[in-house]
Design a protein around this nucleic acid. Structure first.
Length: 859
RNA sequence: GGAUGCUUAGCUCAGCGGGAGAGCAUCGCCCUUACAAGGCGGGGGUCGUGGGUUCGAAACCCUCAGCAUCCACCA
């Protein structure tokens, strides 16, 4: 028997351990079942889980638990991501607090520290998975740096290299001067920063003219190779071809014309710094300019900056501007807001810099994805529009810079001959006496991109899991990592397995704080899921997170909604408690034949069956919000507020007892089974307290819709009684009668079903209910064929007011109906059922109106 | 500059072609033996603007406005 109150601490205790030990999470134990698989979006080993992870994983868990009940052999692969840059930054930060830099330790020692870090955080993450109740298969847990995944990474790298799709090249890349590594384009966050636009005067050689050139980056002027104007720009026509003097260092550089330059921007004259700007780099290639780097890897000036050597880029900027100003070459300075790239991890202003790095040639890979999405077997996105996010990105993509100057990650499998410097790219480690390995590691997303197949055993295509569970069934993740992760899994999977990595992608939005702001460390507005669990229970949080927003849209964290989720669970808890009390101690579950059922039993069973059908149809397409709200309405309105109350009367009759109990049992059990994927802990607790349970709710099947149990007539009659009760209550309220004021009721010409009197007596405090051929005088309510009359305490003026109001409403309804039905377009084009419905409604309303008018006259 | 989303009750949000919904808040009455984390009853919305399509529009199309996000550019 359940306790009086739902106590989430008690309910959540020990259950996860029990499930794990019962091997309920393990896949492949019964291979006669069809496979269903998914991979967890691997959390970074950088810290605690946050609400974003909850949104990533709880829908997955619901899917898994649902699919298991539906008879699938479900594999949910857990794992974690080494998160190269993020983890390395954290470990370095920790070391720095102890006054140590990574360079003090050296590569090997540093990696030891990183592995220690990983171990610690992996433990934390495991604990949190357990708290969340994630039903992942621990026998198949993976880590992006484990041996199997290493192998997959090397295979992919070497293959792409041999196919010419990975190359080493010297290009302008994004450089993080704090972490001292290259970054890919999408690891840059552009922010609108306030800056200054410096207008400098360049002397034009052989004339007395000066040219005004504007720049936001004076410190890069040491690397300038030319000044450009547009060939159509009349202002500078005469000057093109002359030499101008760089006011930073006195260099003579040519003034040239190129259509790239925008006449209307700035002064229309632009300096060209090939090694520190991607556009200038392209111009330099075109004209064969030298590429002059003036910054080192920490963004300090190098020897080309002369007296500024060793200065930070911003110090140099300040000092240089002062000098130029003093020399009379500063025209003016303008404030401007411009977009500046920051490193996603260190927030440092990223330096575009010429650098030798490894790249993936994206075009052929991206084209394959685009073809796939246009073809017969695209990956289905839900919501649909996110498919466009993928294809748009794929159609404008540039080569992917994959090398990172870090230590924590997959070392690039490229080796250089110590003697000749010749490069060798190979999966197997060569003779290290002869070779030295490339120092760099791969972008962490390089290994994440292989996650759906590398975790299943690839590159061994004969691996059992790979054969059975790949491609995976569904992937659930946030829209913010479609570029980072989803797109890369897609192209790598198509290239290496010739298959989509998953059939379907479900995209969720981000969770924001209660004011709608992004949760971030700097704002300190993050919500720790563990605190929420502590206060409301993990089930309430799971329910909230999966049911409080529409797919793909951002949601706000709302403590209020978590509390109301908890209240709902408490409701189910208590309904179950009532049922258990009604069943009694030694109840043995029995089935029932439809013909034994009374009207109200038929009503609730019909509603239950309809609910199962609707909920299931939403579950099948992973619309958890929609599914849960259908169930919610059934639980509250049909079951708790109505049938459960009615059953109190039914149970007073010995002859009904068995069948009412059987119905209560069936309904409450199936509610628990349907709610279970959302809230497994409380569902297990209730389930285990019901008679006739198995060892765990995890051994149960999903309720099966049975159309033969639906009796429409009884459903109507049941609904009628509910309407009558509601109407009598509100009539009393309108008449300022106490809710428990006694009234006499008359039903005419006959009862909707046998025994209805008793329910009315109990629930509207009727002193008597009679069945009469003719409706007596009184306050009548008419329900297609049945009249309910309430006699007693009638205050004529109040009644008159109420009836007049009712007549008004009816009149407008009739007018609407008549308008509709006299509209030839409607009659001709509306569906037949709708037409029928409207005709019947109009008839009924006319009948009601005439009745109301009759009563008004009688007053 | 390009793209996408949002605008519905006091607040937070569902609904997305056939008569406006939920939670919370609010008002009134109830400690009725499942539940006061509750029950019963009520109030509250010309569904951002303007047009169009349709027999019928909160929903579909276009316009505009506001808010948000992403991408690109920014010498």
């Amino acid at each position: 028997m359940l306790d009086t109150h739902y106590d989430h601490f008690k309910v959540e205790q020990d259950k996860y351990e029990k499930w794990k030990e019962g091997n309920y999470f393990q896949a492949g134990l019964d291979k006669s079942k069809p496979p269903f698989s998914l991979v967890i979006p691997p959390p970074n080993v950088t810290g605690k889980l946050h609400l974003g992870h909850v949104m990533d994983t709880i829908p997955d868990d619901i899917i898994c638990r649902y699919k298991r009940m539906k008879g699938f052999d479900v594999l949910w692969v857990p794992g974690m991501d080494h998160a190269g840059i993020a983890t390395q930054a954290k470990v370095e930060q920790k070391l720095r607090a102890q006054g140590i830099s990574r360079y003090d330790l050296g590569r090997e020692k540093f990696l030891e520290k990183a592995w220690e870090w990983k171990k610690e955080y992996a433990d934390t993450i495991h604990e949190q998975w357990a708290k969340l109740g994630l039903s992942v298969d621990y026998t198949r847990e993976r880590f992006t740096l484990d041996e199997g995944l290493n192998k997959a990474v090397r295979r992919v790298f070497v293959t792409l290299y041999n196919e010419g799709l990975i190359y080493q090249g010297e290009k302008i890349i994004n450089w993080d001067p704090v972490l001292r590594t290259a970054l890919s384009n999408i690891e840059i966050i552009h922010k609108d920063d306030e800056g200054e636009f410096f207008y400098f005067l360049y002397d034009v050689e052989g004339t007395d003219k000066q040219l005004v050139v504007a720049t936001t980056r004076p410190e890069t002027m040491f690397g300038d190779t030319a000044v450009f104007v547009n060939p159509k720009d009349k202002r500078y026509k005469d000057l093109v071809g002359k030499m101008v003097i760089n006011p930073a260092n006195g260099d003579r550089i040519p003034l040239m014309a190129d259509p790239y330059v925008d006449i209307s921007f700035g002064t229309g004259a632009m300096k060209c710094t090939p090694a520190h700007d991607p556009n200038d780099f392209a111009l330099a290639k075109k004209y064969g300019f030298p590429l002059i780097k003036v910054l080192d890897e920490t963004a300090h000036m190098n020897e080309l900056a002369g007296e500024y050597k060793g200065m930070d880029r911003y110090e140099c900027r300040k000092a240089l501007v002062e000098k130029i100003k003093a020399e009379g070459h500063l025209d003016h300075i303008e404030k401007m807001v411009h977009s500046v790239g920051h490193s996603e991890r260190s927030d440092a202003v990223v330096e575009p810099m010429l650098s030798k790095q490894w790249f993936v040639k994206m075009k052929p890979l991206a084209e394959r994805v685009l073809a796939q999405q246009k073809g017969d077997d695209p990956i289905v996105f839900y919501p649909k529009r996110f498919s466009k996010v993928l294809t748009r990105w794929m159609s404008t993509i540039e080569d992917w810079c994959i090398s990172r100057q870090l230590w924590w990650g997959h070392r690039i499998p490229a080796y250089y001959d110590k003697e000749t410097g010749e490069i060798l790219v190979t999966e197997e480690t060569p003779d290290m006496n002869k070779y030295v390995q490339d120092e760099d590691v791969l972008d962490t997303w390089f290994s994440s991109a292989l996650w759906p197949f590398s975790t299943l055993g690839w590159p061994n295509v004969e691996a059992e899991d790979y054969k059975r569970y790949f491609p995976t069934s569904v992937l659930n993740t946030g829209y913010d990592i479609i570029f980072f992760w989803v797109s890369r899994m897609v192209f790598q999977s198509l290239h290496f397995t010739d298959k989509n990595p998953f059939e379907r992608v479900i995209i969720h939005g981000l969770i924001r704080d209660e004011q709608g702001r992004k949760m971030s460390k700097s704002l300190g507005n993050g919500v720790d899921p563990i605190d929420v669990i502590q206060k409301y229970g993990v089930d309430a949080m799971r329910y909230f997170i999966t049911t409080s927003s529409a797919p793909g849209l951002d949601m706000r964290y709302s403590e209020e909604k978590i509390a109301s989720s908890q209240a709902y669970l408490n409701k189910i808890w208590n309904a179950a408690r009532y049922v258990e009390m009604s069943l009694g101690e030694d109840y043995v579950p029995t089935t029932f034949a439809k013909k034994e059922l009374g009207t109200l039993e038929r009503f609730i069973i019909a509603r239950l069956e309809e609910t199962i059908k609707k909920v299931e149809s939403k579950m099948e397409v992973y619309q958890f919000g929609a599914a849960s709200s259908i169930l919610y309405d059934f639980v509250y309105d049909d079951f708790c507020s109505y049938y459960l109350e009615m059953s109190k009367v039914s149970l007073t009759h010995k002859e009904n007892e068995a069948v009412v109990k059987a119905v209560l049992y069936k309904v409450v059990k199936e509610i628990v089974l349907m709610i279970y994927p959302y809230v497994p802990f409380i569902a297990e607790e209730i389930y285990m307290s019901l008679p006739g349970h198995k060892a765990s709710i995890m051994e149960e099947s999903y309720p099966v819709y049975d159309a033969s149990l639906i009796d429409r007539k009884a459903e109507k009659a049941g609904a009628l009684l509910r309407t009558m009760i509601g109407d009598i209550r509100s009539t009393k309220s309108a008449k300022k009668m106490a809710p428990n004021a006694k009234v006499k009721l008359s039903i005419s010409p006959k009862a909707p079903f046998k025994g209805i009197e008793e329910y009315l007596i109990r629930f509207v405090f009727a002193s008597s209910v009679t069945i009469d051929k003719e409706a007596p005088k009184g306050d009548s309510l008419i329900y297609s064929g049945t009249t309910l009359t309430m006699i007693e305490d009638i205050d004529p003026s109040l009644l008159k007011e109420k009836l007049s109001k009712e007549a008004e409403v009816l009149k407008s309804e009739i007018a609407r109906g008549e308008k509709m039905l006299s509209n030839p377009g409607f009659v001709a084009k509306a569906p037949k059922e709708k037409l029928e419905l409207e005709k019947n409604k109009l008839e009924a309303n006319k009948q009601k109106l005439s009745d109301v008018e009759e009563r008004l006259k009688n007053l």
